[in-house]
């Protein structure tokens, strides 16, 4: 399963909800405002670091770059471009945490 999260974790609980439901081995992709979760100093970053042993974590690079956060990406999360997003979606059934 590919879980797609697009909300800032300081605005909505979608990331927490997703991490609670995602089973071991699942992929999680952060897009749009969810990309802030994967940046240094953000309270959600610690949660992602904790989850990295059981989940594959990705962030959409163009959304990170658009928000001026590209240089603050944490090591637990892998940046992908839209092509990488397509590859992940092709590989898994998708659930969007709207």
């Amino acid at each position: 399963m590919l879980h797609i999260v697009n909300k800032s974790p300081q605005e909505k609980n979608c990331l927490d909800a997703c991490l609670g439901v995602a089973t071991d081995g699942a992929a999680v992709l952060l897009i749009e405002d969810a990309v802030y979760a994967a940046t240094t100093g953000h309270p959600a970053a610690a949660k992602l670091e904790q989850a990295q042993s059981r989940l594959k974590l990705y962030v959409l690079r163009p959304d990170l770059e658009a928000r001026g956060m590209a240089d603050r990406l944490i090591a637990a999360v892998t940046a992908v471009d839209y092509g990488g997003f397509v590859d992940l979606a092709a590989e898994h059934t998708c659930q969007s945490w709207l």
């Binding site: 609670g20 089973t23 998708c94 659930q95 945490w97």
Partner: peptide, 17 residues
């Protein structure tokens, strides 16, 4: 939550609103 996650893993199409 965990059980819902496992159930979701078995789906072909997930539509979320």
């Amino acid at each position: 939550r965990r059980e819902l996650g496992m159930l979701m893993d078995g789906m072909d199409v997930v539509l979320s609103f």
